[in-house]
Design a protein around this nucleic acid. Structure first.
Lengths: 199, 199
DNA sequence: GTCTATACGCCGATAGAC
DNA sequence: GTCTATCGGCGTATAGAC
């Protein structure tokens, strides 16, 4: 019984090690420049064979990373929405989260923003059809109805608002902006919110 | 003599065919999903051998595409700068160009904005060190001196202004926005300019 | 259940025939 | 100068030994 639990924990620990190492390598070198041997080495495993006990193919590793990250993001957005009433507060919460992730988990954000997922996961739904994305569009939609946000299509609001947010994070992640993301957050938020705020 | 000219024209015509086909494939499927056989087929050639008469390696094809596009962009920016006095007019001209390119040469813009060049051209200078980019930063810098643009670092002005512009184009190129880029241009310009304009 | 050895296919690049 | 045939290497995946 204890042994079983231990094994299960050990197993998921290895699996997590593989995922973390793959995420880092995919974010840094790209999917195609990363071999299973690279992942094996980075995860401190003794052979690539072990990887195949956890994932059928290399694609599946990337797929699980992608769905895990988007799923976790979707949950966080639910939390934020539940704890804040106004669209401005909800968007502010999401911006907070994205900037925090950029400083604390840059590989996650690199994988999400800089890597072109569709090149190696053609069957997966694109980012802009993900649950997380649709929830953000919904927040903007509600903000328009509540007259917090200017009358415009939610798509256009999203495009302008997250244009500033995403570009700030993108330029931070690829080295054009050299301070911590946190440093740019307030100005980015003000500029972004100003593009869609009523009045 | 006539023969020589004909041959030269024929040669550069083939070279151009290779470049155009490669650009299209790189933009659509990505560099690593595109084989020389794909390029040969798309260019209507009979063997991959011909490609090696024009380019030493597959990387060189991508390299020439990258430098050609950036070079042409840099020239266009020079033209625009020469023909307009104010920073607002110069930026407007650049925005015009980018939106026109997105509608008329989407593969060029996809290659530039959606493809991660550093994954297959690690030795090449990143986009934000290119001549074209530095010229844009210069325009913003001058706009600040001329008090057309708010007091801020040119980097921040660039980040916010082109956040909106680039995101509009990016979302158009990957299918989130379904109208022609032209349709979104005016609103994008107004929102972008408003993020940096004085007063 | 873990690792070694290897099979298999793909692709970039080349060499040699025509 | 153009094409065919092929080489060499890599990387995923598997099969079989321990």
């Amino acid at each position: 019984m204890d042994q079983e639990i231990e094994d299960t924990q050990e197993k998921s620990k290895v699996q997590d090690e593989i995922l973390q190492s793959a995420l880092k390598l995919f974010a840094e070198k790209g999917y195609f420049n990363t071999s299973l041997i690279d992942i094996k080495d980075a995860a401190g495993l003794q052979s690539t064979g072990i990887i195949y006990q956890h994932f059928k193919t290399k694609q599946r590793i990337a797929e699980q990373l992608y769905t895990d990250i988007l799923g976790s993001l979707s949950c966080s957005i639910d939390d934020i929405s539940a704890n804040h009433e106004k669209a401005s507060e909800q968007l502010r919460g999401i911006v907070d989260l994205l900037f925090k992730l950029t400083d604390e988990a840059p590989d996650v954000m690199r994988f999400l923003m800089l890597v072109k997922i569709s090149e190696f996961l053609p069957e997966v739904r694109p980012l802009h059809e993900s649950a997380a994305h649709l929830k953000i569009i919904g927040i903007i939609e509600n903000g328009i109805k509540a007259e917090e946000i200017r009358t415009m299509t939610p798509q256009l609001g999203y495009t302008h608002f997250f244009g500033i947010i995403d570009n700030t994070l993108r330029l931070k992640l690829n080295g054009f902006l050299d301070r911590k993301a946190d440093f740019y957050q307030l100005q980015a938020w003000l500029a972004a919110w100003n593009t869609i705020a009523k009045k």
